[in-house]
């Protein structure tokens, strides 16, 4: 390049930038895409559905278009007792996660099993259905079972037979919308963190999840396995309503506005009065803090508590 030859400069610039993108996007993309889903990834996808952030079907992030995770102890079809089973209910029209619709995200072995043993090909978004995650005993490969086809479990019957409904999919939308991930990561680190925060994820654990919302800046503990450390729904409810109730030094914001207007019994929640009572307790005027209302069945508070408790 002689002095001020800009054409050559532009060509060099183009070569440098495209080589850089080839090395940093294309090559790792090949490696990452080669990894099939783990059992963890299949469960996560069936829990969280297609997309947890802004999307066409839930533009205001209200937790719509989400599957419901249920825990069953009896067969919804026959009513006979069965071993405790976690099933994922997609009501008609709920969009499937990418892992069910994109072969390479599911993984070759996983897909073959899901099709042969799980009858996955029969599932359609339009009709919805009930899914299970199984692991093949001989090979250890996880796969998705379409229980509506294999066992005849229908959506309505399954929801009715469920012991517990877990709205963790809608809860993840809350997690994104309320910015929980600005302070809590979902990524125990591989070096020191696992002693406190549990097993770090492995490569296939994220397949089909969007957004992954690892978070980057911790102002609170990592939450990837928080449901294993603390599985108390009462504690979580109090902590979300006012973290200072259970953790006097916590700097977490109060999320009492996620309760909506009324609690589970339809009783209107008076937050001003609750605050006054709480201040009286904090000053020592009353021996007990005011009771925290139990969130209504379809409240956003219920969603996020379900999500957090489901992070095993």
């Amino acid at each position: 390049m002689a002095f001020r030859e800009y054409k050559i400069g532009c060509i060099m610039f183009g070569i440098a930038l495209s080589t850089s993108m080839f090395v940093t996007i294309f090559l790792p993309g090949l490696d990452i895409s080669r990894i099939g889903s783990t059992e963890e990834a299949l469960k996560k996808q069936l829990t969280y559905g297609w997309e947890s952030a802004f999307n066409y079907y839930d533009p205001f992030l209200l937790g719509k278009d989400k599957p419901i995770k249920v825990v069953l102890t009896k067969d919804p079809e026959t009513g006979k007792p069965i071993d405790k089973t976690e099933a994922y209910v997609f009501t008609a029209g709920t969009h499937f996660p990418d892992g069910l619709t994109h072969d390479n995200i599911m993984g070759t072995k996983q897909l073959a099993l899901s099709k042969s043993k799980g009858l996955l090909a029969q599932a359609t978004e339009k009709r919805g259905g009930v899914f299970l995650v199984d692991v093949d005993v001989t090979t250890g490969v996880p796969y998705v079972e379409f229980a509506t086809a294999t066992k005849g479990w229908q959506v309505a019957a399954t929801l009715k037979a469920a012991d517990v409904r877990i709205h963790a999919g809608s809860g993840k939308t809350m997690f994104i919308r309320e910015g929980c991930w600005w302070c809590h990561t979902l990524l125990p680190e591989e070096t020191q963190d696992w002693q406190s925060f549990g097993r770090p994820p492995v490569t296939g654990d994220f397949n089909g999840e969007s957004p992954t919302s690892f978070g980057s800046d911790r102002k609170g503990p990592d939450l990837l396995h928080v449901g294993s450390r603390n599985s108390s729904r009462e504690w979580m409810t109090m902590h979300f309503f006012n973290p200072r109730l259970v953790q006097p030094h916590s700097i977490m914001p109060r999320f009492n506005y996620l309760w909506g207007k009324a609690d589970i019994n339809g009783k209107v929640i008076d937050r001003q009065k609750w605050d006054r009572d709480f201040m009286a307790y904090a000053r020592g005027d009353t021996p007990y803090p005011p009771a925290v209302p139990i969130p209504a069945r379809n409240s956003e508070a219920r969603y996020i508590i379900d999500f957090v408790l489901n992070l095993k």
Binding site: I35, D98, T203, F206, E209, S210
Partner: peptide, 10 residues
């Protein structure tokens, strides 16, 4: 709608 580790890395 890229997902998973690709999304995180991008």
């Amino acid at each position: 709608h890229l997902t998973g580790l690709n999304e995180a890395y991008m």
